[in-house]
Structure formats: structure tokens, C-alpha cells
Amino acid sequence: MSHPKKGDKVTFKIEGRTYDGRYGDSLLEQLRKHGYEVPSLCYHEAVSPYGSCRLCLVEVKKGKKQKVTTSCNYPVQEGIEVFVNTEKVRRYRKVVLQLHLSKTPKSKAVRDLAAEYGVMETPYEVQEQDKDNDCVLCGLCSRVCDEIVHVSAISFTGRGQNKRMQSPYDETAEACIGCGACVYVCPTDCIGLQESDGIRHIEKWHRDLPLQTCEKCGKQFFPTFMLMEFSKRTGISKDQLNICPACRNSVV
């Protein structure tokens, strides 16, 4: 048995057409690159795949076996054949979308996505606890916070129906630097970031951080705590960071 390594060149097929790729690439990304449409809620190319929304279903034939699988966490491999729109894929995806509609009934992002695939309503009951909660538990926020921001301010807790994305003990996320990266990637816009009276407020993580006033133009820009953290990590002095990016650029 030979053992392929990540990054080895491989050839595979999508809907009968041959493509080149690298062993270990996310199949979802390859599909999109080649113009195939695949829905997703929990995938972002900047972070590792997770596989929780079950929307990116495709059928993959490997050797003699053909089965339905999620494509985001499927590593592209030599010789696989991929089918993106089989009867099974459509059928299971419909049910998955119906489940999403019963889980996050108010989320506009979810309803729009479902509508795109012709799913307008769900035969499943909406559970009381889910009525006003738009979080799809995709985990993108915590993966961004772990893998990109390297702060790990938030995480999943509980299991099954009690699974939640939270700050520790659902109290103030003390480690959160208020960068807003999680807010940016959240597919359902359910984290909530507001700025008022010189404070950046991140609702879901119960985090309030005072904003830095630019020493040049006097505008408020990033949270001071975040600038302190940047200063610690980069060695750039805090004074330099007290100038907003716009003013800094104009100086140079």
C-alpha cells in the first residue's frame, strides 16, 4: 500500500469531467473553484472544516463504493468521482434544510438559503428554546478565534440539544480582544456588535471594550485592549498603535 502525502498531485472527476488537485484539498473548495454550486453554512476557507451543517452534501465514488458525504471535510483523493446533484443529495439536502428551518426559524440567512433550494417550510416542530436563537452552531466564530486570532475566547459547551456557543460560563469573555472577526464570519449575523459612547459591545460574548481615540484625528477606532494585545504580540509600541489606520497611512 502506498501512502499519499498532503499536497501530492491527484486527478479526480466531477460530473464526469477530469480535474487536477492536491491530495487533502477540501473537496468543497475544489467544487466551487470549478464553478459547481454547493450550499454551506459552516465552511470558511480561512479555517479548518468542521462538518456540522450537513448542507454541502455530494456523492463520492471511491473504488467500488459510492456514498453520500459532506464535501467540506472530504479530502480530494486520486481517482474519486464526484456527483453534485444526485437524487439522494437533493432528497437529504431538502430534509437538512427543513431541520435548519426548525432549528433557526427566524434567521434570514437560513430562510434565504432554504428558499434558494426550494424549501419554503418545515414539517418539523420548532422547539421552544430555539424560537429566538439564530445560532446554527456552525462553530465558525470559535474556529476563527482559535485558529486566526489565537485567543480562544469562546467555545462550544454542552452536548446534544443543549449544545451552545458561548463565552466561558456565559459570562464576560475576558480573553476576547473585541476584534470582531467572529462577527464577520458568523453566517447568521447573530453575535451582535454595537459601538456607542466610546464602547464596543459584543452582545453574545457579554464583552464591553472601550475604544481608542486616535491621537491625530480624534476618531474612535479599535478597542484599546485589542491594540494592547497587538502591541504585545508584534512588539510595536502602544503609542504607535494609538493612531488610527487612516491617519497612519496618510503620515507615511
Binding site: 431541520l99 418539523y124 443543549n162
Partner: peptide, 21 residues
């Protein structure tokens, strides 16, 4: 099984709850 589901994927977490109901 709905209680023991880790809750990661929607089909198991939400699907089992709906089967139960």
C-alpha cells in the same frame, strides 16, 4: 440517543429530537 448526541451535526442533534417528538 438524542440525549447522548454530541450535538455537532444538525442531522443527529436536530434530527433525533424531531424523530423523538
Amino acid at each position: 440517543l438524542a440525549d447522548e448526541s454530541c450535538g455537532k451535526c444538525i442531522t443527529c442533534r436536530e434530527g433525533l429530537v424531531q424523530l423523538c417528538s
